[in-house]
């Protein structure tokens, strides 16, 4: 492990401790923290995935199946989310790899992050199977 990585790891641990202590940090400082970005990707993946399912079902239920053809704005927004889910899955996966490599967080948190990445891939696989991801 290089000095730079050791330094990065210390910084991540300090950030995690700081987060747990409830201290607030500026957006700029947090956004340069790889561990914070990795967790943010996991949270984003979970939130956006559920948001996609809820919005898609809501539009279908309220305005009917033909919204898939007529595509009003709420349906257009829903149909854009799968691409964001792909990006967040890749981000969560990268975060998981970094977490195992540089021992971010506790073991339990790393396992959780890895499970999220795997769920993300499974979700993206089915989104692709169902035609939400045009290649």
């Amino acid at each position: 492990m290089t000095d730079q990585h050791v330094s990065q790891q210390r910084t991540e641990q300090q950030h995690e401790q700081a987060d747990r202590s409830g201290y607030t940090h500026g957006v700029k400082r947090r956004s340069t923290s790889l561990s914070w970005l990795a967790r943010a990707a996991g949270v984003g993946l979970s939130g956006v995935s559920i948001g996609f399912v809820v919005l898609f079902m809501f539009v279908l239920e309220t305005d009917g199946d033909l919204t898939l053809i007529t595509q009003p704005l709420p349906m257009q927004i829903a149909l854009a989310l799968p691409y964001l889910i792909v990006i967040l899955t890749l981000g969560t996966t990268a975060g998981s790899l970094l977490a195992w490599r540089y021992r971010y967080w506790s073991l339990r948190t790393r396992i959780h992050q890895t499970i999220l990445a795997l769920l993300g891939f499974a979700f993206c696989w089915q989104l692709s199977t169902l035609g939400f991801l045009a290649v």
Partner: peptide, 28 residues
């Protein structure tokens, strides 16, 4: 298969969000 995979993924995401929410509330 499709229902199982989608259901598992959405359940996992939902439980994670609930866990984070609960942990954050407990911390506060």
């Amino acid at each position: 298969v499709t229902g199982g995979v989608l259901g598992s993924a959405v359940s996992g995401f939902g439980l994670s969000l609930a866990g984070w929410g609960g942990y954050s509330a407990w911390q506060q």
